[in-house]
Amino acid sequence: MQKRAVFGSRIVPYALLAPQLAITLVFFYWPASQAVWQSFHLEDAFGLSTEFVGFENYVHLFSQPEYYRAMWTTLVFSTAVTVLSLSVALYLAVMADKQLRAAATYKTLLMWPYAVAPAVAGVLWLFMFQPSLGLVARGLRLWGLDWNPLLNGTHAMTLVVLAATWKQISYNFLFFLAGLQAIPKSLIEASAIDGAGPTRRFWTIIFPLLSPTTFFLIVVNVVYVFFDTFGIIDAVTGGGPAKATETLVYKVYSDGRLGGDLGGSAAQSVILMFIVIALTAIQFRYIERKVTY
């Protein structure tokens, strides 16, 4: 990973690295270690003294039904968004791949939601589904559905899933389309000559060849749902109603800020760090495999 010819200097490389390392140490390593430290300590209500409590924060955390509930919420949320946005994006990408000449136009028209802030996406969907004035909500009412995401947990979850999916389709679409366009046309033609219809060709040739892209996207989507949807949840439901949309990340935020439970919040942060590290490790193993694929 280094060049044959390099510059020799004692001070220069450190000077070049200094800004990045300084910021990294101050804003990454120091807070991360603080989180670990806090997770083993208990702070009194006034923040005057701290006491070492070992794993008590963790034990307490895992004894709370709310924590398991947040885990379950996160699982439901991330599965729903990943499955929905991947399938819609794949379907659209397959359609766009058929029209090579127009594919570029469709790409432009479908990729811009990536640039919309999660919180703004949340507000857009909230507006459509707002029980008293939202256009779609009024339609649902006419159909006899008592739609109210402010009171009904399932409705609230549906709404955040829709907003999060809407924002993620563009990203998945771009990667699926690139993956599809990389599949050699000769393979498809060969199987068409062998008499395989479009559906059969898709499931036996195209879909397996896309599996590296799909797998990569699954990991990226899960990471997205875990961390980048904070804005959507905060803007649409604020974790409610009755914590029905409180994910793990949202719980770190609300326990630390609203609840003032820094130790518990820190313990949750540490667990989240392990989850992220695991996800990143999976992602990197996949990339190694892609090279030899």
């Binding site: 120091w30 991360a32 806090q38 770190v252 989240l272």
Partner: peptide, 15 residues
């Protein structure tokens, strides 16, 4: 790469 700001918000805030 593995530590998004969301997992270490309060300590970073304090700094």
């Amino acid at each position: 790469l593995m530590l998004p700001v969301e997992v270490r918000i309060y300590p970073t805030y304090k700094i």
